[in-house]
Write a protein that binds this DNA or RNA. Structure first.
Length: 851
RNA sequence: GCGCCUGUGGCGGAACAGGUAGACGCGGCAGACUCAAAAUCUGCUCCGGGCAACCGGGUGGGGGUUCGAGUCCCUCCAGGCGCACCA
């Protein structure tokens, strides 16, 4: 028997599929469409196990849907702009473009070696001027549509990456990429008005039924909708008002102070003439926003000396503080404090000796005796000490006080969001240039459409810190398109998350002269199944949802939601090894000792197996997918990654597991080799009658079809794999008396395996004598008649305890079953001397005697 | 603090819709083949007792509902994730 040569076979089929253009999308407009997309990779150098897992999952879906008769779009591209290219430029002196393209070349080959069913004719990289020219164009269209704002405000400055960051990119007070503590800076920047869509993005989540609940919840929290009111307090002695936001307008009669954020304009103004206040404001700004900082920080404030008038109580004035716990980024950056019903306000009031007046009395409390100790009361109750609100419950009081505020011109009901506008300017080189010209006379002038794209200059000095575009001797200098005077280009580039906010739309018509071709996006969008990591739950997925809405508003496409189905896959982990000195050791250097334990290859030094962790260079627990593919082949790598764990859960990569998958490849190859020459031909009709053994084999075969189909539909690939093993075991054990049934079972096995191990399946399909490709063969359909058994095994219980089993014809009458159950010897013994109070018969399942 | 998720053999995990717990794989043990190794094949493998048929226990802990609970309810514990001075 010729040994199955993995490398040759895999290369052969990859070549044939490519030559026949098997994966070109849009070949058949009569078929229903199916768009499968995995999050495109950043070309960092080589693919890693996370890529292998993600693209394998997507490929199984794509191949399965293709077999089910869909016209499948399954493209691939490169999220090619970003900081690592600039860092590489600084470290190695290679230009970012060169570095990026070299990485793409390597990674493209690696992906192709996986045997993915990708339409490579649609490939592009976001750093291609032919891609980003459209991005610039759309930005200008958005600009004209009022979706873009230029604002000077406090922004997040990353001192290591030397750029500003969006709110979503600040994690626990640190830059998402550099990890550096974020500083606050005041700069004029470009924003996309995602807040215009806050309500719509929230409402849209309801429609995303095929998204993980977890992701929808995270987005909901991030958008952070709250209902409340703005209240405008008159400032005593000034012809000015202080506007605050509150979700508890009902507690207005319990207000004992107002407080503004350190960054509030009023604080800013007062600091000019109050050195002590100015110093306090500085202290607040330096305060971290990390968890520890918040936990340990005390509620501090400084009295400004100003006071506001209570909107409903004549003559009552409340002091105005600058307070450390008030955030400029939420609401108006100012609050009124009601200590009795807000814990922070209570802490603050106790620290500064302010009054604490309860105005909501718990239902079970005595109004006359009710006092607040050191815990604010947040629950529902009856309003008291509150003039026209007395006796109402909280909801009624909110409504009534909001009405009254509105009538008095002192406020209004409002819905507030935590979501901020998306800051998209970056002071970096390797990104899409912002197509704006700043003219001393005309102000902000869009680059004329015919001058697009604004191409990145190649001759830049990347060695020094800061923005190379700003330093470039000539690039920024340009005449104003409006008045002709010497002007300057915007030297910022776009956040790379813009690049990934519409690439899925570009894939529909990647060569179009406009950003998208309407007919193409109308056919293909939304993406039917999107696959990627949970880490993009907010960032990329929220931005893309917004961008799709913006594109729709400007007539580019007709959908709101870009991704109808989302699957978030788990991470690939690996055990870590260390020497006794604590030095990390790569898996390749580890020797498994026969006596158990591990030693370092070469030196023999003992090693300690540590925790199973996410693969990372620093822990030296990385396994390169290409090493696995070279050694065992793509089918093995794909099979193992699918078989090990449910795809949404983290999995552990183990050599033993990979090896086991490789053994299975050999087992299938042997099974077919041994059977191939003995089976009847491909076109032989089914016999009129089957033997009992053949019927059993056929039942197992058709049950496997039904089960695997169901499992794939529900992304339970590990279970599908188990079902296939079961079928294989049955085939191996079955009596070989009916060639037709045997051919049916073996061919079914190959067809079920095909989405997961496409090369092996295709090769063996050919070996069985087919002259058509398996890739062009439809998915098998189970015969419903073969899915039900003629006889069933029923369980007999006594008081819920298993006492025996029973073979019965399917759907036997309850009395028959019960009588037979009583006759089971072991059951007789268990029932001896006891009277049966009740017998429960569950058809085809069990009998339970209650004694 | 708020919200969410997960706890099943040595390991990854399976168990429709409350009805045989542990499918399938990994690992392990025993055997066959072999001069030997690799590869392959066969059998066993939740724990305790028993030669065996069987018996008892068992899905993080405790309680409840039910003829019957891994599954439903309450509660506690452990691990993980998200958000967080959000007014």
């Amino acid at each position: 028997m010729a040994r199955y040569n993995v490398r040759e076979v895999e290369a052969k089929w990859q070549r044939i599929w490519q030559e026949r253009q098997c994966f070109a999308a849009g070949a058949d407009a009569d078929r229903p469409k199916y768009y499968v997309l995995e999050m495109f990779p950043y070309p960092s150098g080589r693919i890693h196990m996370g890529h292998l897992r993600c693209y394998t999952l997507g490929d199984v879906i794509a191949r399965y849907k293709r077999a089910r008769g869909y016209d499948v779009l399954h493209p691939m591209g490169w999220d090619a702009f970003g900081l690592p290219a600039e860092n590489a430029a600084m470290e190695k002196g290679v230009h970012p473009a060169e570095w990026t393209h070299a990485n793409i070349a390597v990674m493209r080959d690696q992906l192709k070696s996986m045997g993915l069913s990708i339409d490579w004719s649609r490939e592009f990289a976001t750093c291609d001027p032919d891609y980003y020219r459209h991005e610039q164009h759309m930005f200008l269209v958005f600009f004209e549509a009022g979706l873009v704002a230029r604002e000077e405000g406090w922004v997040n400055w990353d001192p290591i990456d030397q750029t500003v960051l969006a709110n979503e990119q600040v994690i626990d007070g640190k830059g998402w990429r550099s990890g550096a503590p974020i500083e606050r800076r005041k700069l004029p920047q470009w924003f996309l008005k995602i807040t215009d869509y806050a309500e719509d993005l929230l409402a849209g989540l309801e429609t995303l039924e095929r998204w993980p609940e977890r992701v929808r919840l995270m987005q909901e929290n991030w958008i952070g909708r709250s209902e409340g009111a703005f209240i405008d307090f008159d400032l005593a002695g000034r012809n000015d008002r202080l506007s605050v936001y509150t979700t508890r307008p009902d507690t207005i009669f319990g207000a004992s102070f107002c407080a503004v954020a350190a960054d509030h304009p009023l604080a800013d103004e007062l600091a000019g003439s109050d050195a002590e206040l100015a110093e306090f404001i500085e202290t607040c700004r330096r305060l971290g926003t990390s968890e520890e900082a918040i936990e340990t920080a005390t509620k501090e404030g400084r009295d400004t000396g100003l006071a506001v008038r209570h909107p409903f109580v004549d003559g009552l004035e409340l002091p105005v503080y600058v307070a450390s716990f008030v955030l400029m980024g939420y609401g108006t950056g100012a609050i009124f404090g009601c200590p009795a019903h807000d814990q922070r306000d209570l802490d603050f009031a106790r620290a500064y000796g302010l009054p604490v007046l309860p105005v909501v009395i718990p239902h079970d409390a005595d109004p006359a005796a009710y006092r607040i100790a050191d815990e604010a009361f947040l629950g529902d109750g009856v309003l008291a000490n509150s003039d026209f609100l007395d006796g109402l419950d909280v909801e009624e009081a909110k409504r009534k006080v909001t009405e009254r505020l509105q009538a008095n011109g002192a406020g209004r009901g409002a819905i507030n969001y935590r979501l901020r506008d998306w800051l998209v300017s970056r002071q970096r080189y390797w990104g899409c240039p912002i197509p704006i010209i700043h003219c001393g006379d005309c102000g902000i002038v869009p680059v004329p459409r015919q001058d697009l794209p604004v191409v990145l200059p190649e001759d830049v000095d990347l060695a020094a810190p800061g923005n190379p575009l700003e330093r470039h001797p000539t690039w920024r200098k340009v005449d104003c398109p409006r008045c002709g005077k010497p002007s300057e280009r915007d030297t910022d580039t776009f956040d790379t998350f813009i690049d990934s906010s519409w690439y899925f739309a570009r894939f529909c018509s990647p060569k179009a002269s406009a950003p998208v071709e309407r007919g193409a996006v109308d056919r293909w969008l939304p993406v039917d199944q999107y696959v990627g990591g949970i880490e993009h739950a907010i960032l990329h997925l929220l931005y893309a949802r917004f961008f799709t809405r913006a594109m729709r508003r400007c007539g580019y496409l007709g959908v709101d939601e870009p991704f109808a189905g989302l699957f978030t896959q788990g991470m690939v982990n690996h055990v870590t090894y260390r020497t006794e000195d604590g030095e990390w050791v790569e898996p390749a250097e580890v020797e498994h000792l026969a006596a158990g334990g591990f030693a370092r290859a070469g030196t023999g030094a003992p090693l300690i197996a540590g925790r199973v962790e996410k693969m990372s260079k620093s822990r030296k627990n990385v396994v390169d997918p290409s090493d696995v593919i070279d050694a065992y082949g793509a089918d093995t790598a794909r099979w193992f990654i699918l078989s090990d764990s449910p795809p949404e859960r983290d999995m552990e990569w183990t050599d033993a597991g990979a090896h086991g998958a490789y053994r299975y490849v050999g087992r299938v190859a042997r099974l077919i080799e041994e059977a191939a020459d003995q089976l009847p031909g491909t076109g032989v009709p089914a016999p009129a009658k089957f033997s009992d053994d053949a019927r059993m084999l056929r039942r197992a075969t058709h049950k496997a079809i039904a089960a695997v189909t169901d499992d794939i539909e529900q992304f339970r690939f590990n279970r599908a794999v188990a079902r296939i093993y079961e079928l294989c075991n049955v085939i191996g054990a079955a009596a070989n008396d009916d060639g037709w049934a045997r051919r049916e079972s073996i061919e079914t096995l190959l067809r079920l395996i095909a989405p997961m191990m496409p090369h092996l399946a295709e090769e063996m399909w050919q070996r069985l004598g087919h002259d058509t490709l398996l890739i062009d063969t439809p998915w098998p359909e189970p015969d419903p008649a073969l899915l039900v058994d003629e006889r069933v095994t029923m369980v007999v219980q006594v008081n819920g305890k298993l006492r025996g089993r029973l073979e019965m014809p399917r759907d036997a009458a309850a009395e028959t079953v019960e009588a037979a159950a009583r006759d089971v010897p072991n059951v007789q013994a268990a029932l001896a001397g006891r009277s049966v109070r009740k017998a429960i018969v569950v058809p085809n399942r069990l009998v339970n005697f209650v004694v």
